[in-house]
Design a protein around this nucleic acid. Structure first.
Length: 213
DNA sequence: TTCACGATTCTA
DNA sequence: AGAATCGTGAAG
């Protein structure tokens, strides 16, 4: 044991550079990454992202397509922050801001799978936000924080993951862009592409608690 | 001040 | 397939 021995530095959170790229590049890479929250009692709540969508300012479906406003300001800000908005006056939806400042760009987190929890507890953007207890007060918080709320990289066990690329859900403009991605083997996906059958329960993928970030 | 509209969810 | 529900932005 030498005196100059250094502690091992573990990169627990995705870093700024990861998000400083176009949403349609970041979105598929976010599948398999983990959303992590340290709860008030100190315990760790985490889930694996299994479905994402990309949005960009030059895209009619994007919140920043028409104008910049106090509501969507975060989406125009620096990458690597959460953008949380209210949907249908009831639900909250969680995005991560991507690309660059002054250009509305982000990835909507549409579904997650949580260890030892029902498959569909976070199968949809509103349900995901609900399960993680996220709302407008979390808007603009850094994703790279490593304090209470952060995103952890994909484990190596996800080396070859089978992704489905398809069109986005619930929009009325820009419907044709194939900017939604999901993990085919997961039963926690909000809505499957036409013809893609739900995997059987005994051969689907679920996270286990040992893989805690 | 009023009105129409959802990046949704739940139920039938 | 259809309803519920309400914050937001545009219009008057």
């Amino acid at each position: 044991m030498t005196a100059c021995q250094q502690p091992v530095i573990v990169i627990a959170s995705l870093r700024f550079d990861f998000f400083a790229r176009p949403a349609e590049v970041v979105a598929p890479e976010l599948i398999g990454c983990r959303l992590v929250k340290r709860q008030d009692d100190g315990s760790l709540l985490w889930g694996v992202i299994v479905e994402t969508e990309a949005y960009s300012q030059d895209d009619p479906a994007c919140h920043g397509y028409r104008r910049r406003s106090p509501q969507n300001e975060t989406l125009f800000g620096e990458p690597g922050r959460f953008y949380v908005y209210v949907s249908y006056g009831i639900h909250h939806c969680v995005n991560v801001v991507t690309d660059r400042e002054d250009w509305a760009n982000g990835v909507l987190l549409r579904a997650a799978a949580l260890p030892a929890e029902p498959e569909r507890i976070a199968a949809g953007p509103g349900l995901l936000a609900r399960r993680f207890g996220l709302d407008r007060t979390d808007d603009s918080r850094p994703v790279t924080g490593e304090h209470d709320l952060w995103m952890a990289p994909r484990p190596d066990t996800f080396a070859n993951l089978d992704l489905v690329t398809t069109t986005r859900i619930g929009i009325s403009r820009g419907e044709t862009r194939p900017w939604r991605w999901y993990l085919r083997s997961s039963r926690s996906v909000s809505r499957r592409a036409p013809g893609d059958r739900m995997p059987a329960r005994d051969q689907c993928w679920m996270p286990n608690e040992e893989e805690r970030p």
